[in-house]
Amino acid sequence: MVLEEKVEFDNSKLNKWKKWALKGDMGVKGYRIVEGAYGSRVDKIEKRRYMVVERPHGVVYQHSYGLLSRFYEGLLNKKLYGTKCPKCKLVYLPPRVHCWNPKCKLEETEWIEMPLEGEIVTYTIMAFAATPFLKDLPFILTYVKIGNSCTAVPLQLREVNPLNVHVGLKVKVKFVDKPKGDLMDIYVVPAEKPKPPKRSKEEEERLKKDLKIVEEWVKKHFPKEQ
């Protein structure tokens, strides 16, 4: 019996990354000797010599999205799916294949197409982030309730001045031009004129200054992205 067959795929970039993973084999690629500290208490430190080696490690995971694959395939086709429990009627985005309402005893849910609109539950202005996102700073991370979902999904909010973002802002869901199959295929933009949160003059000035510092930092470190 054939348990699995490839139906559709895009592995145009895979070979490049497989080579990269083979290269990152934990072998020593360089070293340095340093004079460093030794001891439990900072007021009682001794000096010791240490050798520090560089060991790169690369990996490529072949990750299945499991029964949630329907959601991610939906993204590729610019459709947004959630799930609904036939018993308790709760709607989930992020979707759940089994209802988590204890009363429903992991009832299998049904797929439904979600409306491309929602409301911001909360947000933050990211001014420092992990490596892949540094060049996008500052960006706004939000948790959004889409349609009548009872839960909120993390999405980036774009096309708005960070100073104006607020809890309760109505938003529209947009798809990127070329979806690749993760949550970054969608983002939200305001669906109404924002009502900026109340801030003192001092708080507002400080936040403006913060954002300027971030923008200058990105310009300096990622000149090509500008």
């Binding site: 909360t122 933050t124 990211m126 996008d136 960006f139 991370l141 993390p154 980036q156 970054m184």
Partner: peptide
């Protein structure tokens, strides 16, 4: 890693959104 991680907030992002909720 399928849901919170890809959006780029990481823990400083998640915790910050939770505090903004408290501020609100």
């Amino acid at each position: 890693t399928d849901w919170d991680y890809p959006v780029g907030g990481y823990y400083s992002g998640y915790y910050a959104t939770m505090e903004v909720r408290r501020m609100h």
